[in-house]
Each structure stands twice: as C-alpha cells, then as structure tokens.
C-alpha cells in the first residue's frame, strides 16, 4: 500500500499538515480579534501606525483607484484608502477570518466610512476577483500567516491591473545583531506575558513571535515576489529591519 505523504508546513515553530494551518491561524485570530487594536498599540508602542503611514505613502493611491486591503484585519489601512480614493474609487477589505472582518466593519462604520468599502471573506491563495481588477493591493502583517505564500503572491499578481503595485508590510529580520538580540528577548519573554495580561491569551502571542522568525527574510521575500512575476521589486527596512515594506509592480 502506497500512502501519499501528507504535505506539511510550519505553524510558528511547529510542523503541521498544510490543510490544518489555515484553521489554526483562524483560531489565533478569532481569539485576538477583540483586543487586536489595543495589543497592536501596546506591543509596538504605537509604531505600527507609522509603519502603516509609510505603506500608504508608498502606495500612490489616488482618486478613483480600486484598492484591495488583504488581511486587512481591523481596517487601519482601509480607513485611509477609503478617504483617498473618494466616491469614484473602491476599497475591498479582505480577510480570511470572519471575526477580524466583523471588528473591522464595525470600526469603520463607527468612523462614518461607508459607501466605497466592501467587506469580503477570502483566502489570499485563491482571490475571488477577475484578472486585472485592482490598482493597488496591500497585505499588512498577513503574508506570514498564509500557508502557500508563492500561490498567494501569484494570485495577487493575477488580479492586479498592469501598472498596479503590491505592497507587503511584514515583520522581517533586524539588520543589526544587538537589535536582533533585544528584539528576541522582547518577543519571547515580554510579548507572551503582555498577551496573557491584556488579552488573557499568551499562546497566540507566542505564535506571533514564532511565526515572525519563520517568515522569509527581506531578500528571500523579494525573490519570491520576482518569481511570482512582479517587477521593479524593492524593499525598505523600517525600524532597523524589524519590519520591511516590499513593493513590486505589474507591467
């Protein structure tokens, strides 16, 4: 009897079956959705707002654009994009996780942002849009949770319009040894404790730290984007490389 070996992937430092990762990630985000914004501010000391500002600055989004904010979570980027594209533009807030979408929708409705935002639950590997649909796609702190990143990048490339750009904002590898050590100490000691105290969930934040370490570094991700078809791919290290903003174009 020949049994096909089950394909595996990583979930933090654990190795799990590929078909299990999505539901495990979903569990993490169902668990943290309610306290997501508070924890973001707390964990990054508010700096995540500056990382997102840099993403918007690099997006070139303007009036009439169609924008996909993938893994958009609680809608920080969508809120700004919605204002910048105006009434003639459209923003799609996409997330695989229904709890995060729910929190995002409620937050944006409370901000009075309605009319040009759609909320779609979707898998980044199989984006439910026709070819050449969007001017800009962003995925902020989401790619590392995707099971098959290459497939997701190819899917994003497919739905981008020629001339459109993809921006990937994601945790990366710090450029300096001292910063790297301090960051490791913070991630594996303080972060789970903060998660335990504020969100009563240390495991999800342990996963966060582990998934960051398992995510491809700056140059590997750049190569993956090139492989998916993106051109003029560049990246910018933010806060010493703790986070990197990758940008690639489709022509």
């Amino acid at each position: 009897m020949n049994e096909t070996p089950e394909k595996t992937t990583h979930f933090g430092y654990k190795t799990v079956a590929e078909n299990e990762k999505a539901s495990m990630v979903a569990d993490v985000f169902h668990s943290v959705a309610a306290k997501y914004d508070v924890m973001n501010d707390l964990m990054s000391f508010g700096v995540h707002r500056l990382w997102k500002r840099q993403t918007i600055a690099s997006s070139g989004v303007r009036k009439g654009h169609h924008v996909l904010d993938l893994a958009g979570g609680t809608g920080d980027l969508t809120a700004k994009f919605s204002q910048l594209v105006g009434e003639t533009g459209q923003v799609v807030l996409g997330d695989i996780n229904s709890s995060m979408l729910k929190v995002g929708r409620e937050k944006l409705h409370n901000l009075g942002l309605v009319g040009n935002i759609d909320y779609v639950q979707m898998n980044a590997e199989m984006l439910p849009f026709p070819d050449n649909s969007f001017d800009v796609i962003t995925i902020a702190f989401g790619l590392r949770n995707v099971t098959d990143k290459d497939k997701a990048l190819r899917s994003m490339y497919r739905i981008l319009k020629p001339g459109g750009r993809l921006l990937v904002l994601e945790f990366s590898k710090p450029k300096h040894e001292a910063l790297s050590k301090a960051y490791d100490f913070y991630s594996f000691n303080l972060l789970p404790t903060m998660g335990k105290l504020v969100a009563n969930d240390s495991e999800s934040y342990q996963y966060l730290a582990e998934s960051i370490r398992m995510h491809p570094d700056q140059d590997t991700l750049k190569a993956m984007m090139n492989e998916a078809g993106f051109e003029q791919t560049t990246y910018q290290n933010l806060t010493g490389g703790i986070v990197a903003l990758h940008r690639g174009f489709k022509y």
């Binding site: 450029k175 300096h176 750049k222 791919t233 560049t234 990246y235 910018q236 010493g240």
Partner: peptide, 10 residues
C-alpha cells in the same frame, strides 16, 4: 537602480 534600492539606512 530601482531593483537595487534596498534601504540600509541606519
């Protein structure tokens, strides 16, 4: 030039 624009500003 654009491809090589990998910021190492410290």
């Amino acid at each position: 030039q654009a491809t090589e624009k990998t910021s190492d500003d410290t």
